[in-house]
Structures are given as structure tokens and as C-alpha cells.
Design a protein around this nucleic acid. Structure first.
Lengths: 223, 223
DNA sequence: CGTTTACCATACGGAAGAGTATGGATTGCC
DNA sequence: GGCAATCCATACTCTTCCGTATGGTAAACG
């Protein structure tokens, strides 16, 4: 007889055994139909979290439904409710995972650039051309009414803003201006995410996009 | 005997008798509970559209439910489905109303400024200090996955972008730079909306905010 | 003043999705 | 091989919300 509100021995323990790479390949089917079960091994909580993040990136937080996710993974709800106590718990775990791993990819490489003058232009160009890892961020930006994503986004945005502020200071701006310039830069980044691969506003092509990025660099970064 | 899919004589006709001011005051209760019926006159389709826009501004497009709206207006669904054929029709009407009336307030005043050099700074300062009419736009920005809002936002953003582009040209920028500067400016505007009254990111106070606006003007507008 | 029109309440049907209960299948371990 | 832990399927319940059907009430109008 199971306990009323929970499992007897569920892996809900926020296990610190992080496996970054996936053990099973079953999270790369972007649009697989039902009756396509690529690998019918068992699932882990991590699989659910990664699939949740992928679904969030593609269709937004509002589309995160457990039965839809189960269909996509080739199982039913019964599997889900063994790994997670509730849908809210899955969202929490997925957001936590994203906050911990999804960051270092961009900011980690930039910190290795020693010359402070070269750092900001390189950051701009890299972010502009590697927009794929920012799709989750863009999706979460549209879910800021959701109480669970607000603190996560506040922390992430705060960290990025601080990074930008110190970068502008090291580039020669006085502290007050560096903070305001960081605000302006980050707002431009966020707005660009919204206007482009959620709305497809100017439907800009590649060479024109490069010109826009260089215009941004020339306008925002002090010589 | 009513027709199967529609009403006999419903005011669905997109009536061109525009009444901008509300006839009845019953759309200003931001959080009134049930059992508070301020004025129990009858409702019109316009009342529903205005209430829908207010609800969208406060809680987003996803919160636009007909039974919730009916509760807020002190009636039941029976009223709603007399005025509108479906929920989708209400959203369409509300968006159309917003697109037609919600614009001229800002851009109309700016166009009366004759000096092209003074126009952009004045636009920046006004938009920064009258953020209230932009709450619907911010809410719609978070609903860009919704198929109904995409064309509306595309049109509105396109018009604003073109306005910005010509303003920058009249301020002395060459055409290519004017377009890119308009992109940058509008992205900063959109990002600022997201980061501030959806996320409350830097929780900036008033005098610091004024300094930020002046910094924006100094950075983005050519001397 | 009564009839028509406009507006609303009540009650229902149905779909979608969260969460529960429970038994079955599979894996790891002794 | 057998037992226990792990993972999943099936079959429910409950809630929410869209939409329909239909009768009722208040306003408009002759």
C-alpha cells in the first residue's frame, strides 16, 4: 500500500550526481509520432527534464503537459508520476537544470578572452551567431507571468547584467555609465530575441544581420 | 428557433460607430470580488472588448477566459455568447480595437513636433514616462506563440519601426544606419518592457531611471 | 399597453488535462 | 532462479473551461 501523497522510494532526492551527456538517445526526436519507439529502455528523471526543456524551447512553458510529454517519450503518465510528484515539480527541476548547465557555454568561453577591449565585440558576435542555446531563454521570457520562472529568470538576468557591467567598466566606461550601458545592451538582446524567432519581424537575411551586429558593436561599445 | 451556428441578429457587424469613452464605468475594478455589481445595466460588445483588453494587460492572453470575464463583469456566459460567437472572436475584436485606438496616443503627439532633432529625444522621454498604455503591448509580446496575435504584433511593430527609421534619417543618419539604429532602438524598447514590468529586474528607482533614459538618448541618438 | 427585440440566467454536454489507484512487467541482486 | 526494487500501463476521478440549448426578464417601440 502506497503512501497517500508520494512514493516510497522515489528518486526525488535532488541527486548531485550530474550526468551532462544523455545516457539514452531518446530526446532528439523533434516531431516523432506515436508508435515510434526508438529505444524502449526505461526512463530516468533526467530524461523527463531534458525532454521538458526541449518542449519548452519549441512550444513554450504553457505547452508543458505531462500526457503530451509521455506520448513524445513513448510512455504513459504512469511513468511520469513515478519520477515526479507533480507537473510543477518537473518544471522546477527542468528550470534548475537549465540554470545550472545552460549558462557556462557562452559566458565561460568569453571569460577566457584576456583583452578587455576584445571581449565585448567577441561576445556580441558569438551570441548573435549561436542563438540556438538561447531558445529556452526566449521561451521563458514569454512565461514571466508564471510564478515559477520569475525567480530563475531574475537570477540569470542579474548575473548576465553584472557580467556586462564589469565588461563595460573594463572597457573604459565610468561605473555609472557602465551600468546604464549594460542595461541598454541587455534590453537590446532581450528585445531582439522576442522580435526575431518568436515574431519574425524584419525577416532579416544573413549578410544584413551581420551588418546589424556590427552596427550594434559600433554604437554600444566605446572605442 | 435559433440558427445552429450563430445568432439571428447579433451585433457582430463590425460597427463603425466608435465610442472611445466608456458609457458605463464598470471596467475599472482591478480586483473586485464576486458579489460586487457596481452597475447592473446591460452590456455591449464594446464592454466585453475593453474588459478583455484590461484582463490581457493584467494577466496576459492566456488568462482570457469567458467565464472569468463574465464573473468580473457581474454576468454569466449567457451574456457573452450573445455578443460573440466564440472566445476567439472576442480576442480578435479586442486586438483589432487595440490596434486602432491604442496607437495614436503616443505616435500622434510626436508627429506634431516639427524639429526632427528634437523629435527622437522627446519620443524617448515620453514613452519612458507613459509606460501604462504599453502594458497591453508587453502582454501581447509574451503571447507571440498564439497565432491570432502574431499578425497584429507584426503590423504594429512594423509601423513603429518604420516611424523610427524615418526619424533617424531625418536626424541625419544615412539610410542603412538609420534602419539598423531603428532596429536597435526598438529592440531596446521591447527588452525594457519585458525586463521591467513583467520581470522586475533591476528594480530601478525614479531618478536612476531618468539617468538611464538620458543615457539611452546620448548613446542612440546622433548629435 | 402589449409585442418585439435585446440581453441574460440556468442547465447541460463534451473535451482536455492533472492526479490517483493498482496491477503488471522488467531489472538488479543474492 | 527467485525475490525485491524499479519502472510502466490501464483505468479511473476531478476539475476547468468552451460551447449549446432554452427559457426568462428588461428595455424599446408601436
Amino acid at each position: 500500500m502506497r503512501s497517500v501523497a508520494g512514493h516510497e522510494n522515489p528518486p526525488h532526492s535532488t541527486s548531485l550526481t550530474f550526468r551532462i551527456t544523455n545516457v539514452r538517445g531518446c530526446r532528439y526526436h523533434t516531431h516523432m509520432n506515436v508508435s515510434s519507439k526508438p529505444e524502449r529502455t526505461r526512463l530516468s528523471a533526467e530524461d523527463w527534464e531534458l525532454a521538458a526543456l526541449q518542449l519548452i524551447a519549441e512550444q513554450g512553458v504553457g505547452a508543458l503537459a505531462v500526457e503530451a510529454l509521455a506520448r513524445q517519450l513513448g510512455v504513459t503518465k504512469g511513468s511520469f508520476y513515478w519520477h515526479f510528484r507533480t507537473r510543477e515539480a518537473l518544471l522546477h527541476a527542468a528550470l534548475e537544470r537549465w540554470e545550472q548547465y545552460g549558462e557556462r557555454e557562452v559566458l565561460g568561453q568569453i571569460e577566457q578572452i584576456t583583452d578587455p577591449r576584445k571581449r565585448l565585440p567577441e561576445l556580441f558576435r558569438r551570441v548573435a551567431h549561436e542563438l540556438q542555446p538561447h531558445r529556452v531563454y526566449a521561451a521563458l521570457l514569454k512565461a514571466l507571468d508564471h510564478p515559477q520562472v520569475v525567480p530563475v529568470m531574475a537570477r540569470v538576468s542579474q548575473r548576465r547584467m553584472e557580467f556586462l557591467t564589469t565588461a563595460y567598466r573594463e572597457a573604459g566606461l565610468p561605473p555609472g555609465e557602465a551600468l546604464n550601458r549594460a542595461r541598454l545592451t541587455y534590453a537590446a538582446y532581450v528585445g531582439f530575441l522576442q522580435l526575431n524567432f518568436t515574431l519574425g519581424l524584419p525577416r532579416i537575411n544573413l549578410e544584413e544581420f551581420d551588418a546589424y551586429v556590427e552596427h550594434m558593436i559600433a554604437t554600444l561599445i566605446p572605442a
